[in-house]
């Protein structure tokens, strides 16, 4: 079904001088999907989000929001968009209520529904009690919530959040994540982050962008599979025999961290944990720890970009 895709990007690029910040990327987002946009700093996440929300014009390519071309009919397309930039666009001299009223009017909410829209946005973002306070006097967490309230006030189909949890304390992060999850029920959400657990906890789908190109686009589950424990931390009371470990089927590499701990890398589809445990017991190494280690985001990037490089090399040959 064509109407299913709320956002479609076709070969969208953006150049700064000769430098391609975003290099002909294409993807689409379905209704009700929460998509995590992952990538190192400078990968092109913010640029892409700015293009989707009309803050930047793409050098070439097409962006379609809910069936409406953003470049041809920007006003109609933007009615369906809510955007929270990296720095929330707040006027510190206004109170929360005044600010939200302004945003509601900007988004063309009819006069008789203004108060209701403000009330609902405040309720969803937990701003009920701060309506009369000046935005400049609020804490960072609350300012972030006001930013989110602004993005959802007109109940847009698509909500785009650029690093919504940066600079918040752990409790605030948890609250904001819960809020985003809730938004996912009736809006499509695209959020950018460079925190992997964040994506795992709230997103349905992951897009990984690197040097302006999408290098991974799949369900979160696939990403988890991809990074499935490929390291095991082995802790033994006595010194272990490296050569015996190396001989175990599936082991790629061994790194002795100290006299007790050894880090073992292996292929994801060949888990040697059972074999190692047996080996340790048979040789009386005094096994006390056998702990699977998740890959860090950094390692996933390296792994994915390596794959990418190999593919392109293969193509060029």
């Amino acid at each position: 079904m064509k109407n299913d895709a709320l956002i479609e990007l076709h070969q969208v690029s953006r150049f700064y001088n000769q430098q391609a910040a975003v290099d002909s990327i294409s993807f689409s987002v379905k209704r009700g999907e929460v998509v995590g946009f992952l990538g190192p700093n400078g990968a092109g996440k913010s640029t892409t989000m700015k293009m989707i929300t009309g803050n930047l014009a793409p050098t070439n390519g097409r962006i379609i929001v809910n069936g409406i071309d953003l470049l041809d009919q920007p006003k109609q397309a933007k009615l369906n968009l809510g955007y929270l930039p990296e720095q929330p666009p707040l006027y510190p001299e206004q109170s929360v209520d005044e600010y939200l009223l302004y945003c509601a009017r900007l988004n063309r909410i009819p006069q008789n529904k203004l108060l209701e829209a403000i009330y609902r946005a405040k309720e969803r973002c937990g701003l009920d009690h701060v309506g009369t306070r000046l935005i400049g006097n609020l804490s960072k967490g609350f300012q972030q919530r006001v930013g989110i309230a602004q993005a959802i006030i007109h109940a847009p189909d698509v909500v785009i959040l650029d690093e919504p949890t940066v600079g918040l304390d752990p409790i605030q992060i948890r609250e904001i994540r819960a809020l985003i999850r809730e938004l996912g029920d009736d809006h499509s959400v695209i959020l950018s982050t460079h925190i992997l657990p964040e994506v795992q906890s709230i997103c349905d789908r992951v897009l990984i962008i690197h040097q302006g190109k999408i290098i991974f686009d799949d369900a979160v589950q696939q990403l988890s599979d991809k990074m499935q424990i490929s390291e095991i931390m082995l802790g033994c009371e006595t010194f272990v025999d490296e050569n015996m470990l190396r001989a175990v089927d599936g082991v790629i590499d061994i790194e002795v961290l100290n006299s007790n701990q050894t880090c073992i890398r292996f292929h994801a589809d060949h888990n040697p944990a059972t074999a190692i445990a047996r080996l340790a017991v048979e040789n009386h190494w005094g096994l006390y720890q056998l702990c699977p280690q998740g890959l860090s985001l950094e390692e996933i990037f390296i792994q994915l970009t390596d794959e990418q490089n190999i593919e392109t090399e293969a193509k060029s040959i």
Binding site: T53, K78, L90, N107
Partner: peptide, 14 residues
Amino acid sequence: RQHTLSLLFSAPVS
């Protein structure tokens, strides 16, 4: 300077 321009740019306003 206050980065509030993006509020206007992403709103349905010409």
